[in-house]
Design a protein around this nucleic acid. Sequence first.
DNA 1: TTGTAGGCGTTATCAA
DNA 2: TTGATAACGCCTACAA
Lengths: 334, 334
Amino acid sequence: MERATLRDVARLAGVSVATASKALNGQPQVRASTRARVEQAASQLNFSPNTLARGLITQRTGTVGLLTSDLEGRFSIPILMGAEDAFGTDRTSVFLCDARGDTIRERHHLSALLSRRVDGLIVVGARPDSRPSLGRDLPVPVIYAYAPSDDPRDLSLVSDNEGGGRLAVDHLIRCGRRRIAHITGDASYGAAQDRARGAQQRLAEEGLEPAGGEVWFGMWSESWGRGATRMLLERCPDVDAVFAGSDEIARGVLDVLHEQRRDVPGDVALVGYDNWNILVANARPPLTTVDMNLEQLGRVAAQRLFAAIGGTLGSGIEKFPGKLITRESTAPLR
Amino acid sequence: MERATLRDVARLAGVSVATASKALNGQPQVRASTRARVEQAASQLNFSPNTLARGLITQRTGTVGLLTSDLEGRFSIPILMGAEDAFGTDRTSVFLCDARGDTIRERHHLSALLSRRVDGLIVVGARPDSRPSLGRDLPVPVIYAYAPSDDPRDLSLVSDNEGGGRLAVDHLIRCGRRRIAHITGDASYGAAQDRARGAQQRLAEEGLEPAGGEVWFGMWSESWGRGATRMLLERCPDVDAVFAGSDEIARGVLDVLHEQRRDVPGDVALVGYDNWNILVANARPPLTTVDMNLEQLGRVAAQRLFAAIGGTLGSGIEKFPGKLITRESTAPLR
DNA sequence: TTGTAGGCGTTATCAA
DNA sequence: TTGATAACGCCTACAA
């Protein structure tokens, strides 16, 4: 298919390029009948405006880059969706580039994006801890999502992990549980620390300690969930709830609870973290879990970016609350 | 940061814009010392060429669109990676757009991509069955990956499901298994049919039938894997191997095998499909599975696209073999 | 209400 | 080896 230009449209409609441009862009100073003729010509020629040419003039491409390092797309896909929703079916498109956690690849994608004149950038880190800033001397606004920038002058939007931990434990307490354990991932992750802190604070408010006496830090894997649960059941056989630091861990916990013939949620209630559908929906029973609300993060990132393109960007770290998704792995104590 | 243009670079280097352009683009007809001066000026000004302007002239943007409908990114991310690898660190970037299985959104993204003048398009469907063609009158080459186009004049690259089924069963036979069941997903999926056909052909070559007498079609879920396995064990208690149509199903199968105290792989060997890391690596034992080799699909798609931009594109459906990833859920019979 | 003309930042074609 | 100059396709004063 050959590409029609505005000139072709104008010629077919019998007007000048300028008039055609105005007609197509909804400028008021053009007669209705003229506009109709131009639109008719445009659709007849299957005209699609060349945004390169337009961008050259307006200094805007209507394009935002989403630079991610999250290999599986687990976190970046929801953020992408949220951002797309916020930009709406408008002129702005979001393009995703995957740096695969590789700094060199990241610089490369960054310069590719910049030379393509994106209007802004959303950076999604690989893990919820702070990541190196892209620098302050970029020609477009940048927002860090999920993983905050290590430079406080940048604007970062992150999930409130402390609040998430609190949410999970609060729910278990409302279910009448008192002997609540927390099995979580790598202690070197800030997110693990934050979730644990929130959990412990809520426990303390009830005058409780974590079951087993301490938080079980380990790894973000099913197999750690299994191992920790075995130890837990030995040390503290009367545990009546487990808050797992991730859905993967929760699946491991669940596995061993079944193996040891504990009923879930009858004997032990279980809460996960992430709301990773494949893990959570298919578990038996389906898992109650904390959703980080990443779509919202993406939506807000888009809004902030949009505002920043005209004006200025804030700075600092903004935290967004998660939400508890209740499924069958938790229930009031009989 | 203000943006430097080629004019700024040229002025600083004391040459004309034309010369600066040639120097920066590696054209031979420019003196070495001049080139050095220009390059020095460019880096001093942090110059990044405006690809919009360049694209306007060259009619090439060095950009390829990856239009996906695969919500979770499970299939499109590996394809994206393969494509990026093939294009290398060259001028070409791949941008991913998610249509979320919505036709309207797909048309919208398509026109956004086209008006941004991508050089080509890779379309990744939501499921491995054929999908509607984007049409023949597009101004850029299009390649369908994973899910073929329903128009045979388009070029589609897909995974060889029949071969994959054969691969799985062949491995089980080599492990000395003879009573091999096949539990798989929705019978309305061509992929389910193809995998089953390959499996049955390989069984027939040994004079075998599927354990349980037939292929167990159902749903692509863990819970179907569990249900089918219960029925299977009842109808055919001496089964010594299961080939599952997906890793999700395999996890369900595994669950019930544990529940019924069957040793894996001692009593029953198990093969999954997809090599979805989160499911496969954390299973206990880790699952042998068929990998569809989607990175390769993405690589080849990129190469074909690259070739097509200069010349012409083929048509029809090209099938790519999968590969068996051996883990601990299969072993020779004792 | 419509048209003319200039320019956005490059590259390509000549001529110098 | 270098430099004017004309595009590329569109938008936007400004003039008609």
